[in-house]
Amino acid sequence: MTTLLRDAELAAAFDHGARAYDRLVALNPGYHAHLRRSARRLGLPDRGAGLRVLDLGCGTGASTAALVSVLPKARVVGVDASEGMLERARAKRRPPGVSFVHATAEDLTTAHDLPQSAAGPYDAVFAAYLFRNLTDPDTVLRAVHRLLVPGGRLAVHDYCLGGRRRDRAVWSAVCKGVVLPLGTLTGDRDLYRHLRRSVTAFDTAPVFAERLRRAGFDRVRVLPLPGWQTGITHTFLARRPPYEPGGER
Rank of each mutant, 00 (worst) to 15 (best):
L4M: 06
A8H: 12
E9N: 03
L10Q: 10
A11K: 02
A12V: 05
F14A: 01
G17I: 00
A18P: 11
A18Q: 11
R19S: 12
A20S: 15
A20N: 13
V25W: 02
A26S: 13
A26T: 11
G30S: 08
Y31R: 08
H32G: 11
A33T: 10
A33H: 06
S38G: 09
A39K: 09
A39S: 05
A39Y: 07
A39F: 06
R40H: 12
L44I: 03
L44G: 03
D46S: 13
D46E: 15
G48T: 08
R52P: 01
D55G: 12
D55L: 13
D55C: 13
D55K: 10
G57A: 12
G59Y: 06
T60E: 00
A66V: 10
A66S: 13
V68R: 12
S69I: 09
V76L: 10
V77S: 13
V79T: 05
V79M: 13
A81G: 10
S82F: 07
S82I: 06
R88G: 02
A89S: 12
R90G: 01
R90D: 04
A91W: 05
R93I: 10
G97N: 14
V98R: 13
S99A: 15
F100C: 01
V101L: 05
H102N: 13
A105M: 11
L108A: 03
L108H: 00
T109R: 14
T110A: 09
H112A: 15
D113G: 04
D113Q: 14
Q116T: 05
Q116N: 00
A118W: 01
A119C: 12
G120N: 11
G120K: 11
P121H: 09
P121S: 09
Y122N: 06
A124F: 12
V125C: 15
A127Q: 07
N133C: 11
L134A: 09
T135L: 14
D136W: 02
D136E: 12
V140K: 02
A143P: 10
H145G: 04
R146E: 15
V149S: 06
R153T: 12
L154V: 15
A155S: 05
A155C: 07
G163Q: 11
R164G: 14
R164P: 00
R165E: 15
R166G: 00
R168T: 10
R168N: 01
V170D: 07
V170L: 13
W171S: 00
A173Q: 11
K176H: 14
K176Q: 14
K176V: 01
G177V: 02
T184H: 09
L185W: 06
D188L: 03
D188W: 01
S198A: 15
S198W: 09
V199G: 01
T200N: 04
D203A: 12
A205C: 06
P206L: 11
V207R: 15
V207G: 08
R213L: 02
A215H: 05
A215D: 09
G216W: 08
V220G: 07
V220H: 04
L223C: 08
L225G: 01
P226I: 13
G227N: 08
G227I: 04
Q229G: 00
Q229L: 07
T230H: 10
G231K: 04
I232P: 02
T233R: 06
T233H: 03
H234L: 02
F236G: 08
